[in-house]
Structures are given as structure tokens and as C-alpha cells.
Nucleic acid binder design. Structure first.
Lengths: 151, 151
DNA sequence: CCATACTGATTGACGTGTCAACTAGACTGA
DNA sequence: TCAGTCTAGTTGACACGTCAATCAGTATGG
């Protein structure tokens, strides 16, 4: 049984949706970058480390916590380490393992980034929508996510 | 006057939203890639060229048509040219100018990609939502876009 | 006429992501 | 015990994006 293709109206909704979200993400990322020197990825990693006991995590646990692939995380950690935001530390025990440790500079950067970040989210996202629309967004996210393969 | 920060519920909506859309985009892109060998960027460029008179456009016009920065387009065209999907051609007149011309291979690739692409959009996006939700998405996209700086 | 500014387009450097391959230690079962 | 496998993590190659610089050709004003 052949299944229908999207109508042109449905396709337009899709394209507008994707383009808008991409633009939105770009604007938020740009503000974060210029106001705090951190990328969204940096922020995500630093948030997870900040909340971790001893502000340290094993890479795999960190990857799970933020939902990243290990290789992506490894590359990102390399860049963050070069900038002194985090540090890698050996682990006595299972010597495959390692730790990612929050550095002072990372902690400082994170703390000075949180208000600008939250402000950007409010201004560009929350303030753009009515409370009803915000609820709708939550439902729509859930529906889309549940409809994705795997999860 | 100090303005409020997002509540944790609002923040959760934001994060779920961004993560879901990113995942969705990734899945659609992955399907397009494996089923047709084209990236979303390739598809966008090929679509614009296909619809252009003589299936050729000046880079600047192409950039405007698809809403890309010229430098991004230039890099992407370089990659597409290497694969034989498009070709660059000089322009007699204003010799700064140039043309991007759709190659046979590009045309073929595009035409064999359109059904898989549309199918993926239907399955992963349209089918996941009720008609009301789809309407809501359109309204929300518009609200978010209108709230962005510049536009 | 010519210095200057503008326009079209490309380039290089670099951050970011994915995929596949690799290293290396730890586990497991015949 | 030791081959096979699993787990943790890194690496290299490459696609994609942004930014700033560059280049060449066109237009403009004194």
C-alpha cells in the first residue's frame, strides 16, 4: 500500500519549522558566545560537571548525562582542555578509565554564563510564546520524540 | 527593571524542544544520506537549481534564494563540484560574476531523492502530529521567527 | 584620470559533528 | 591459560558552518 506524501502545506510547515529553530539556535548560540565566550556545547559540559559530585565525572558517564556520543565528547573535551576549562585525570583502579575534572576557569566561566544564557532563553523563546503555546511546544516535543526510531 | 529568568519548567521545555528537534533533524538527515547520498544542504541547493530558469543561478542569487551566507554557499559548492553534482561557469559581462550550473548527475540525484525525502518528512514529522498540532507548529514557528532580532 | 569605495566571490583558520578504525585493559569460558 | 570479546576512550578523516581576510573587477567623485 502506497502511503501519501506530505502536502505542500505540510511541507511548508516542516521547512519553516526547521529553519526557524535553526535560526533561533544560532541566535542563542551567538549571544552566549559573544557575552560569555562559551558555546552551547561548552555550557552543557560545564553544567553537567558543576552538578557532579566532586565536579568530576568519567567521560562515559558524562556522555550519558548529556546524551552525546563518546567520540563527540572526546573531541569537545580536547578543545575545552586546550582552553583550560577542564582537565583530564588518570584513574587508579580500572586503568582504562579516566576522569574529566572541572577547572577553576571552567567553573568561573560557567557561573558567569548562566544568567546571560537564561536571559537569552527567556527573551528569545519564552517571551515569544503565550503560555498555551509553551504548553503546546512541550506536547509537540514529546510527540515528535516518541515517534522517533529507537529512543 | 530586572526581568525574570525562565522557571525550571520553562527551561525544561526549552531543552526538550531543542534536543528533540536536533535529534529529528539528525534522523531525517541520516535517512536522506543513506538512501540517496545527499545531505540536506545538497538537497536544498539542488532544489533551488532545479527550479531556476536554465537550471543555473549566480551564486549570490542562489544564496538569497536559500537563505545562506555566501561563504557557506561557496564552501558547499566546492564540495558539490568535487562530486560532480554542479559545475561553476564563467560569465561574460561582469566578469566578477559566475554561474552555478546543475550537472546531469546532480539532476539525477535530486530526482531520485525527492520521494525518499518527502517520505521521511511525512513519517517522522507529519505522522507524529495531529492536524491541530501541525497547525500549532506553524503558529509557533511564526511567533518564534517574528520575535527574532532583524529578520 | 585615478584613488577610493563597493560588489561578487573565494579562501583559510578554526570550531563542531559523525563515522569508522584503533588502542588498551578487563572479562569470560572451553 | 589464553583466544575471543567487551568496554573505555581516543584518533583521523572528512563534512559542515562562521568569521575575517583577501582578491578582482566595477563604479564614483574630485
Amino acid at each position: 500500500m502506497p502511503r501519501r506524501l506530505p502536502t505542500s502545506a505540510e511541507l511548508r510547515v516542516w521547512r519553516d519549522f526547521i529553519e526557524t529553530v535553526e535560526a533561533l539556535r544560532g541566535v542563542v548560540a551567538g549571544r552566549l558566545q559573544t557575552e560569555t565566550g562559551l558555546s552551547p556545547g561548552d555550557y552543557t559540559v560545564l553544567l553537567a560537571l558543576t552538578e557532579a559530585p566532586q565536579t568530576r565525572l568519567r567521560p562515559s558517564d558524562l556522555a550519558v548525562a548529556i546524551g552525546w556520543e563518546r567520540s563527540r565528547l572526546s573531541h569537545h573535551l580536547g578543545r575545552m582542555e586546550r582552553r583550560g576549562l577542564i582537565r583530564r585525570e588518570g584513574f587508579s583502579g580500572d586503568s582504562r578509565g579516566a576522569f574529566v575534572v572541572l577547572e577553576e576557569a571552567g567553573s568561573t566561566a560557567f557561573h558567569s554564563a548562566t544568567v546571560p544564557h537564561l536571559t537569552a532563553v527567556r527573551e528569545l523563546f519564552v517571551d515569544a510564546l503565550t503560555p498555551d503555546q509553551l504548553n503546546a511546544v512541550a506536547l509537540i516535543s514529546g510527540a515528535l520524540r516518541d515517534h522517533l526510531p529507537d529512543h
